[in-house]
Every structure is written in C-alpha cells, then in structure tokens.
Amino acid sequence: MTDKFVDFGASPAQADSLVRDFQAGIAWDSDGASDPVTVEERVVDGFPYTVQSFEDGSFVASGIAAAPVEGQLSAMSVTECATSGTSAGVAYGTNCLVKEETGAASAQFRASYSVWANDQSIYDVRDAWVNYDLAGGVSGGTFSESTAPGSTWVQYSWQADNPYATTSRYLKLLATSSGVSTYANY
C-alpha cells in the first residue's frame, strides 16, 4: 500500500510512517490541519491530477478526465472529457471520469455536466468504484444529489468497515457557474 504514497511523491520512509499513523488513528497533514507545501498538475498511472502535497508526505489528488476512447492510443485521450467545449455560452463535458485519491482511499465514477452563467447540471452519473480504502472493506455504495441556487452536486458514498469502526466516505462532483471540481472526505 505504501507504493501509492511514493507514486504521489512521498519518500518510502514517509509512506511507512503515514500507514503507521493511520493505523494508530493519528491525523495526517492532508486532513485539513495544514496547508499544502506544493500544488501541481501531475500525471500518475496515465491519469491527470491536481496534487496537493503536504510536509508529512500525505497528499490529495483530484482529477476529472475522459475515459480512453477506443482506437486512440495518444495520452491526449485522457486529458479531457470524451467530448467537451463551449456552445452558446454553455461549458460541457460528457463521459468524464471523476476521481480523487489520497493515501487512505481512492474512488471514481463517470458523469457528464453542463455549466452556464445562471445554472448548471450533472447527469448520466454511473459506474462508481472504490479502488481501495485503507480503513477496511467497502459496503453500501450509493449516489445522492442536491441542487441549490448557484450549485449542483452529485456524491458517491460508501462505508469502510473494519473490526473497530465503520467510516463513512464520499466522493463529490460539484458544478457551479465557474466550473466543476471534486471533493472527498478521505
């Protein structure tokens, strides 16, 4: 499991320490107590991320990209949604892969979105998957959504179960008039 931390820039010693801290219930810097040391765009395992790296080696990696299109072998096929652009003042993306990864967990789902000056929508939400969760086995995956003035979000939620506790997790896609972004509580 420490390989994920190293893939995102932690040293092997930091990765071992982070796993021990997680098992002991000690919060990582990426849990919100600290500001990131660096924020950069990075491609890891062929997926484009915005990576926030922290002093202790923890990280938050967020990304929205296209599923590979059959017959396209270029790395460009994963840098945008399957179709995206702006038409009549509406920014849109279809068949987007929404993914967020930390050392503790990784999840993804597919969605399409439209964003315009006074409204936004997220639709065609599907294919959710938890890639891994250090807190334990995964159960109870469900989608929920909400629309409020100025924003719309879709969230995939699950439970990470272990012998000591059950932890609620989520990955959220948020659309506002300024664009789309991802959030997660892991």
Rank of each mutant, 00 (worst) to 15 (best):
S87G: 00
G103D: 03
A88V: 01
V115M: 12
S74R: 14
S106D: 07
E145L: 10
G141V: 06
G150N: 09
Q159Y: 01
L73F: 15
S139R: 08
A105K: 03
G150C: 08
M76C: 11
N118T: 15
N162K: 01
D124Q: 05
P149V: 13
C81I: 04
E145R: 13
A165S: 10
V130D: 05
D119P: 12
S121D: 13
Q108F: 05
Q72R: 15
G136K: 02
S177G: 13
T176H: 09
S151A: 12
G136M: 00
L174T: 15
W129Q: 11
S139E: 10
Y170I: 09
V78G: 11
G140E: 11
Y92P: 09
A111D: 06
E101P: 01
S87M: 00
S121G: 10
Q72G: 10
Q120W: 10
A165Q: 10
Q72W: 12
V78N: 10
T142H: 10
S77P: 08
L134H: 05
A65W: 03
P68W: 11
S84I: 01
S139D: 07
E80K: 09
S77T: 15
T83P: 00
S157I: 00
E101L: 06
A107Q: 02
V98L: 03
M76V: 13
Y123P: 00
T142V: 13
G137I: 00
V98Y: 04
A160H: 00
